[in-house]
Design a protein around this nucleic acid. Structure first.
Lengths: 235, 235
DNA sequence: GTGCATTCTCGTCAATAAGACGAATATTTT
DNA sequence: AAAATATTCGTCTTATTGACGAGAATGCAC
C-alpha cells in the first residue's frame, strides 16, 4: 500500500555487482576485487557498488563500476543481467538490493589488473567455490548462479565465442566449452556440430599453427546468436 | 565510490511487480489490475508495489502484493524472478526500480477476481501485446519478456504442468504447450515424448472422459523438473 | 441397441542428429 | 627423414524426432 497515509518509502540502497567470467590458464576464472573498507575489509568480493545518482541507469552503473574497479570497458565484453539479490541482512550496514550482471570476457584485454584497478584479481571459480573458501557478502551464491548460467548459455547460444578474442579457431572454441563445462568433447564431433550451425563462424581465410599439427582455420564470430538444435552437456 | 566524502545514498524506490500467466479459455492470459491512482490512473498494469518496509524480503513482497491485489496465494502457483527493470523515467514520480516476478498459475484457483482484488482481471496476452494496446509504465515490455521466458521454459523444464491443476491428462498438458507456443503439436508424438521423460508424470490409475472419445489416463506431477533432451519449438 | 464420430494410445517407418572412431592432411619436433 | 601432433573429413551406429496408420474405448444420433 505505497500510497497509504503515514507510509514512508523504505530506505533501500540499490547496488550493482558484476560476475565477470573468463577462460584463462585452462580454467574458468572470475574477476574479484579485494575490499579496502569494511564490511568484509580485505576479503575478496565481486566488483560493484551503489548507484552514483538517482538518475543513473542500472546498465550504466554496471559499466561504470566495472571500469572503476577492474579497468575493463563494457564494450569489450558481453554483459547481461543475471538476477537481483535482496535478502535482508545480506549487507550488515543497511538494506541493500543488488542487481547482478553476468559478464563474458575474452582472455585478451590483458590479465585484468592495472590502471585504476590495483586490487582486481582473476581467480579460478573452482577455487572460489570450494567449501572452505570465503568471499564477501552472499557473493559465493551469486558466483554459483553465474557459473551455472554461463554453463547453460553455452548449450543454446553462441556465447562461447564471447570468451574468445576476435579471431579464433574451432579448437579455441572447443577448449572454452571443455573448460566451462569441465568435460572433454570429441574434437571431430565438435567440429562437425559447430560448422553445421549457419552464421556461427565466419572464415577469415587464414590459418594458424599454434603448436605441432596441422594448422587450424581462423574464424570470426558470425551473426548467429542461438544454437538450434542446442548442444547439450552429457550430465 | 559509495564511501567517498560528500556522497549521499541516491533515493531510489524499490518495487516488485508480478507477471502471472495462466491458460484460460484457450488462450494464454495475464493477470492485470486496474490502477486506482495516478500515474496511469484507470489503466491496466501488472500487480505490484513498493516494499512494505526496509526489512521485507523481495520474495515476500511479491507474495504480499499478489495476495493484496489479486487474491492469489503464492503457494498456489509457481513464482520465480524474471528480471529487474530500472530505466530512469519509467515512473514519472520518482526513480523506481522494480524486481519483476514471473508466475505460472493453474486455471483452477477461480477466475482471479473476488476477495480483495476487485480490480483484478485476466486478459489474453495477444490482446495486451497488440501494437495499439497500452498498459501502464513499461509493463508491455515486461509482459513481452515474461511471455518469451514462459515459452522458453516449456522447452527445457516440466513447468507446463504448473499451468494445470493437481490432476491432468496428457491432452491437458499438450493444450498448454499448444496455447503457450501458439502452434499445434502432433498428439501421438507429444504423448510419446512426455511419457518417455522419467518422473514427469505419475499415473493416478484413474481415467476421465472429457467429451467424446476414449477416456484419458489421469496423472499428477512427478519429481522431474528438467526435460532432457529438451522439447524444442519448431520456429 | 447399433453405427459413427471422436479421442486416446500404441506402433511403424523415414529423416535427422549425435556418439564413436578411422583415416587423410599438414604442420612441428626430434 | 621419421615421428609426433593436431586439424579436418568421412563412415558407421545409435538415439531422437516427425509423419502418420491403426486399434481401443468412449459419447452421441438414430
Amino acid at each position: 500500500m505505497p500510497d497509504d497515509e503515514g507510509w514512508t518509502l523504505p530506505e533501500v540502497a540499490v547496488a550493482v555487482d558484476l560476475a565477470v567470467l573468463t577462460v584463462h590458464d585452462g580454467a574458468l576464472q572470475i574477476m574479484l576485487v579485494k575490499r579496502g573498507i569494511p564490511p568484509y575489509e580485505g576479503m575478496l568480493a565481486l566488483p560493484g557498488g551503489f548507484l552514483a545518482s538517482t538518475e543513473e541507469d542500472l546498465d550504466v552503473a554496471a559499466a561504470r563500476e566495472l571500469q572503476e574497479e577492474t579497468g575493463l570497458h563494457a564494450k569489450d565484453l558481453h554483459l547481461e543481467q543475471l538476477r537481483t539479490y535482496g535478502t535482508p541482512g545480506r549487507d550488515p550496514r543497511r538494506r541493500v538490493i543488488t542487481v547482478c550482471y553476468l559478464g563474458f570476457s575474452p582472455n585478451l584485454p590483458e590479465p585484468a589488473a592495472g590502471g585504476d584497478a590495483s586490487e582486481a584479481v582473476l581467480m579460478p571459480v573452482d577455487k572460489v567455490l570450494r567449501p572452505r573458501a570465503t568471499v564477501a557478502f552472499d557473493h559465493k551464491k551469486i558466483i554459483t548462479d553465474a557459473v551455472e548460467r554461463a554453463r547453460s548459455k553455452l548449450e543454446y547460444t553462441t556465447l562461447a565465442a564471447a570468451f574468445c578474442g576476435p579471431e579464433f579457431t574451432v579448437t579455441d572454441l572447443r577448449e572454452v566449452y571443455e573448460i566451462v563445462w569441465g568435460e572433454t568433447l570429441d574434437p571431430r564431433n565438435f567440429h562437425r556440430k559447430i560448422m553445421s550451425v549457419p552464421g556461427f563462424l565466419v572464415p577469415t581465410g587464414e590459418r594458424v599453427s599454434r603448436q605441432a599439427g596441422r594448422p587450424a582455420a581462423v574464424f570470426r564470430r558470425g551473426p548467429a546468436t542461438i544454437l538450434h538444435p542446442a548442444m547439450l552437456r552429457s550430465s
